[in-house]
């Protein structure tokens, strides 16, 4: 564990708490992509199967439980209490285009051709693109509530902090995880456009609005 990774995980945790807070305070899940949230459940469940057979640390154990539990809770809220505030008509990204290629790539690129390793690879690749339905929704509506942008910013910061973590690990432990690094760079790259608008508008006190 190093500071970059710890802060990254903290940002990830914070992003989820911000999202849950947004839903409860605005009594709405408007502007949130159900598809992205469902993909995150798939990501966490397929990656954390090792909860059953590998012990890493108490920290690792509880974080995994939190990510699985909170992502399921978000789906539950979106399908029950806040269902009327959800608009499937604008959440139209075709997730088959993500699930298909991720499955194929996971079958090709994995550290061992075993069910759990293939699922692990799949979860890494899927996480890297799981935000796309959300960004697509944002693009379609052209604007977002400020709290929603804070959620996305925290998620982006989480990914960005994993990059110095890998650099640090390379120099201190000699650890290189090519699958995680490649997917992580792609994932971080997807946030660049968002961050430009977030920094130039939201952090200056303006509303998040995309140029027409």
């Amino acid at each position: 564990m190093n500071l970059f990774r710890f802060l990254g995980d903290t940002a990830h945790l914070a992003s989820i708490l911000v999202l849950i807070h947004k839903m409860h305070t605005t009594k709405s899940c408007r502007g949130i992509s159900f598809k992205t949230q469902a993909l995150y459940v798939a990501v966490f469940v397929t990656r954390y199967l090792d909860l059953f057979y590998r012990w890493v640390s108490l920290y690792n154990f509880f974080m995994k439980l939190f990510f699985i539990g909170s992502s399921c809770y978000i789906l539950f809220l979106m399908k029950t209490k806040f269902r009327p505030t959800q608009d499937p008509a604008i959440d139209t990204f075709r997730i088959e285009y993500l699930l298909g290629p991720c499955t194929v790539i996971a079958l090709i690129f994995n550290y061992k051709f075993s069910p759990t390793e293939i699922l692990w690879s799949f979860s890494i690749f899927l996480e890297s693109v799981a935000i796309l339905p959300q960004l697509f929704l944002l693009q379609r509506t052209g604007e977002a509530e400020t709290i929603t942008t804070h959620y996305l910013a925290a998620l982006g910061i989480y990914r960005a902090l994993y990059i110095p973590n890998w650099i640090y690990r390379y120099f201190t432990e000699g650890v290189v995880d090519p699958i995680a690094i490649t997917a992580g760079l792609v994932q971080t790259g997807l946030y660049i456009d968002f961050f430009y608008v977030y920094v130039t508008k939201v952090l200056q006190g303006q509303k998040f609005e995309l140029p027409a």
């Binding site: 990830h12 640390s57 061992k112 692990w120 650890v175 699958i179």
Partner: peptide, 10 residues
């Protein structure tokens, strides 16, 4: 250690 042996990141 090889990455597949650890997977210690979240």
């Amino acid at each position: 250690p090889a990455a597949e042996e650890t997977h210690d990141e979240l």
